[in-house]
């Protein structure tokens, strides 16, 4: 194990984030505040409780997941796309490191940022609504698992993308809609049966449901099913990444 290399990549990625810390932290925190003002107070006060939880509190897990998903993908995809774009990737490719070490550096850093962000949003939410976390360990486990899985997914996008547009397209066209339709702001039980079944095809539903369960013991799908779905997605990403490094896809010619 080339520990020095993992540390070097990890530090490099964290300090890149540190240089734009204001932007990286402030923008998700501000948008969370806006969500609370609009949905939590203005609209939420006219919405009945869901499963005995006030609307403002109900949306907290979904809001955190929304930010964690998009930030994981954008951080990790940018982290690997940028060296490819500038050409500095030559150094990583010619270094005595294997793909596990590359992943630990890049994906580890992206996931760390997402975890920090998730905790910050949680703290911000605490100012607006009463929070209760029934299963803090499960909560943290979900946060870490989601951060890692979607950072890995972002890493794959960063390798696949051959332009800045493609880097943006997946988060914008796929993840944001899936997250919004995945029960961030409502329980899918509130939908007609047909749309409930359609929603079950949306992987984000399982994330948000499981995450919300850890807070309020209220879920759209069972906890084991949620965990299983994330693991399946994580496995798919791992298989893809292995293939990428084995073939050198878009990394080596």
């Amino acid at each position: 194990m080339n520990i020095h290399a993992i540390t070097a990549i990890y530090r490099f990625e964290m300090s890149r984030w540190g240089r734009t810390i204001g932007q990286s932290i402030a923008s998700p925190v501000i948008s969370t505040c806006l969500y609370f003002v609009v949905f939590g107070s203005a609209i939420g006060s006219r919405i009945a409780q869901i499963d005995g939880i006030s609307y403002g509190s109900f949306i907290v897990p979904g809001l955190i997941m929304l930010s964690v998903l998009t930030e994981s993908i954008s951080n990790a995809s940018f982290g690997i796309y940028f060296p490819r774009f500038t050409g500095t990737i030559y150094e990583v490719l010619s270094a005595p490191i294997d793909y596990i070490e590359i992943l630990l550096g890049y994906v580890g850093a992206a996931a760390s940022k997402s975890i920090i962000l998730g905790v910050l949003i949680l703290a911000t939410a605490g100012f607006f609504v009463p929070l209760e976390i029934k299963h803090p360990f499960i909560m943290f486990f979900f946060l870490v698992l989601t951060s890692v899985t979607f950072s890995l997914f972002g890493f794959i996008i960063g390798i696949w993308a051959d332009g800045f547009e493609k880097l943006q397209i997946i988060p914008m066209l796929i993840i944001t809609p899936l997250a919004f339709l995945g029960g961030s702001f409502y329980s899918i039980k509130m939908l007609p049966v047909f749309w409930q079944n359609v929603s079950l095809l949306n992987p984000v539903v399982y994330l948000i449901s499981g995450f919300r369960f850890s807070f309020y013991e209220s879920a759209d799908v069972s906890l084991p099913l949620s965990l299983l779905m994330i693991f399946v997605f994580l496995m798919v990403c791992i298989v893809l990444v292995r293939w990428i490094f084995k073939t050198g896809y878009r990394l080596k010619s």
């Binding site: 080339n2 070097a8 490099f12 500038t86 270094a95 490191i97």
Partner: peptide, 22 residues
């Protein structure tokens, strides 16, 4: 090809670490 926003000192130390040296 270089990381425009890194400092000279950091980038050279990064390289050393990447190649597995303390």
């Amino acid at each position: 090809s270089t990381d425009a926003f890194e400092t000279v000192w950091n980038t050279v130390n990064f390289s050393r670490g990447l190649f597995g040296k303390a």
